[in-house]
Write a protein that binds this DNA or RNA. Structure first.
Length: 422
RNA sequence: GGAGAGGUGGCAGAGUGGUAAUGCAGCAGCCUGCUAAGCUGUGACCGAGUAUCUUGGUCCCCGAGUUCGAAUCUCGGUCUCUCCGCCA
């Protein structure tokens, strides 16, 4: 969430930044500032009262020890007399803190300067495009047909055993998954990311820390008996490693990665968006995360973008990079680059990675700080998919299909253990 | 699932009603011709003011309660550990 100091010191700039999301936050922010001013005034009153009571209590202790019982009894009355007002002010303070916190939680992050104003995907800015779009041979088909033709993925079986959006991968389809995961992890390791295998369920605190709660509660699978949530992305457990921590500047940047399945309810999706591998309830992903010094976090974002580019180049897939506009960015992000791969047979772009800098938005929820030169400061958090499997598999099958089967790109062959699918 | 023990600063660890010892680590300063040691200082968060300083409050897992005063006593919750049971 945004920091109160940002609202206090840069009210107009925050409102202008949020306007790029199509949000008019002036009224909300002024409400927060008013409640905060009242909160501080209330605390000043309460602190004064408590100081008085504390001093009197200490004095009573001294009087009792020196045997001046009557004087002590008289002072007890003063302390007791303060109690009612103290209780009232404490309640007021808690209520004001609660309302400020609640309002802050529902304000999205401020887009950074480079981000364009805009309402939807149409306003995103293309910043890079690799090579040319391939033309496929006569008779090229979408991946769901290839998946059944070569017996790689069984969607119907998944629907029988679990439900739509939970496919089975079989034979070379399964080996392809395993090989891609290993390829992504090893490339991350070479780039200096420490690998973790995190839990696949998270608690409420962690969901709040990275911003899935309370905003996106309905998108996560919830285990009611234990109040745990299935992870929608490894971002949640990986970033929450650093919840409630105070780091040294020398520790930064921290680079971690991990492979996990991801679980998403995807309520409200329909149509061709959900056909085949395009949108699943369970999918595999390798995530990279950085905890960075604010001074260098945008350089780290560029570094992560370059990392993902390298992966797609090795996979020989045509792609473009978009810098998302204010209205299309996630709630918690300050800047996001989306990677889209061209799906030749479907003739559409498929999002395969999202790389974001959250600046202090998550850090403020996580209470993740470091000892900086000017005292303790919030860190910047960043993360990116490197990469999400299903649409990569879709694009690999579709773009590398030929009359003799599907060609595995050379750089991937060592990881999957075969050179083609036929 | 049953029984028991426990949760104190970055870490270790004392503290059974009078307002958080001590050690280690980190950081800063001082000292010192030998790769180090020694000495001194240093918790987090929220406020106020005459604002590189002064000062108040909160924080001993969380929440209530008793009390002039709670890390300490009472109740509820939560998490961890040990043993037993079940079990991959």
């Amino acid at each position: 969430m945004l920091t109160l100091s940002a609202l206090r010191e840069q009210r107009d700039a925050v409102i202008a930044a949020l306007a790029k999301r199509g949000l008019d936050a002036a009224e909300t922010i002024d409400g927060i500032l008013a409640a905060d001013a009242e909160r501080r005034a209330t605390q000043t009153r309460l602190d004064g009262l408590l100081a008085e009571s504390n001093a009197a209590s200490r004095k009573i202790g001294e009087l009792m020890r020196s045997g001046q019982r009557e004087e002590a009894e008289a002072m007890k009355a003063t302390v007791s007399g303060n109690k009612a007002l103290e209780k009232e002010l404490k309640d007021q303070l808690a209520a004001l803190e609660g309302s400020v916190h609640e309002a802050l939680c529902h304000l999205p992050n401020t887009p950074c300067d480079l981000v364009a104003a805009g309402k939807s995907a149409e306003d995103n800015v293309e910043v890079f495009r690799s090579g040319g779009v391939p033309t496929l041979a006569e008779g090229a088909v979408p991946h769901w047909d290839l998946a059944s033709k070569y017996d790689l993925i069984d969607f119907d079986l998944g629907a029988k055993v679990t439900g739509a959006g939970f496919p089975f991968y079989k034979g070379k389809g399964a080996k392809l998954q395993r090989g891609l995961i290993r390829f992504f992890l090893e490339r991350a390791e070479e780039a200096g990311y420490l690998e973790y295998i995190p839990p696949h369920m998270i608690n409420e605190e962690s969901g709040f820390g990275t911003g899935q709660l309370p905003d996106k509660e309905g998108q996560m699978y919830h285990m009611q008996d234990d109040n745990l949530f299935m992870i929608p992305t490894a971002e949640v457990p990986l970033t929450n490693i650093y919840r409630d921590t105070l780091l040294n500047a020398a520790d930064l940047p921290i680079k971690l990665c991990g492979y996990t399945p991801c679980f998403r309810r995807e309520a409200g999706s329909y149509g061709k968006d959900v056909r085949g591998l395009n949108r699943l309830h369970q999918f595999d992903k390798v995530e990279i995360v950085q905890i960075a010094d604010p001074a260098t976090s945008y350089a780290k974002l560029d570094e992560m973008v370059d990392h993902v580019k390298g992966l797609l180049d090795t996979l020989e897939l045509p792609y473009r990079i978009l810098r998302l506009c204010g209205g299309d960015m996630g709630f918690t992000s300050a800047m996001t680059y989306d990677f889209e791969v061209w799906s030749a047979a479907q003739e559409r772009w498929l999002e395969v990675s999202s790389v974001s800098n959250f600046e202090t938005y998550q850090a403020n929820r996580l209470k993740c700080r470091f000892r900086g030169e000017n005292g303790n400061e919030l860190v910047h958090t960043l993360n990116g998919s490197a990469l999400a499997l299903p649409r990569i598999v879709a694009a690999l099958l579709e773009n590398h299909q030929g009359p003799d089967g599907i060609r595995i790109p050379e750089g991937l062959q060592a990881y999957v253990g075969f050179t083609s699918i036929h």
